[in-house]
């Protein structure tokens, strides 16, 4: 009757408003049977992390296309650490140059999806990795 569902937060830090990708991914994840919480645009790192905590999500998906990822992502990951939310699987999407990927992965962002990633790839990634971290 009641069963465990994957709960996932799709969040958009930064001031840009390119939410096409975030919404398409959110919808695909829902259609894959997950419970998707979407924050809307322009969320501060504090708002995002507090939402992760209150909603007790298994996964956090971040989307940014303004180029400010190296400002916002480290802040988010640090706050996650401070709040002891290390078991949350984090991935990101948007326009992120190749050379930024490694430093972001070192912060604990497990995967970074660029433009043109099929939604299936994101779904598979979430399903596969969320089980591992549980």
């Amino acid at each position: 009757m009641t069963e465990k569902k994957i709960r996932i937060l799709v969040a958009k830090p930064g001031l840009d408003s390119h939410d096409r990708g975030a919404k398409v991914v959110a919808r695909a994840l829902r259609d894959a049977g997950m419970e998707v919480i979407y924050t809307g645009l322009r969320q501060t790192p504090e708002q995002i992390v507090e939402t992760v905590l209150q909603e007790d999500v298994d996964v956090l998906g971040l989307s940014i296309l303004s180029g400010a990822h190296m400002t916002h992502f480290p802040k988010i990951m640090n706050l996650m650490k401070q709040k002891d939310l290390k078991d949350v699987l984090v991935f990101a999407g948007g326009i992120i140059p190749e050379e930024d990927i490694e430093p972001l992965q070192k912060l604990g962002i497990r995967e970074i999806f660029g433009p043109g990633t099929p939604t299936e790839t994101v779904i598979d990634f979430v399903k596969k990795n969320v089980q591992k971290s549980r």
Binding site: G14, L15, T44, A68, T71
Partner: peptide, 8 residues
């Protein structure tokens, strides 16, 4: 709100 976005 502007942190990281100025002049970008």
């Amino acid at each position: 709100m502007s942190i990281g976005e100025v002049g970008r």
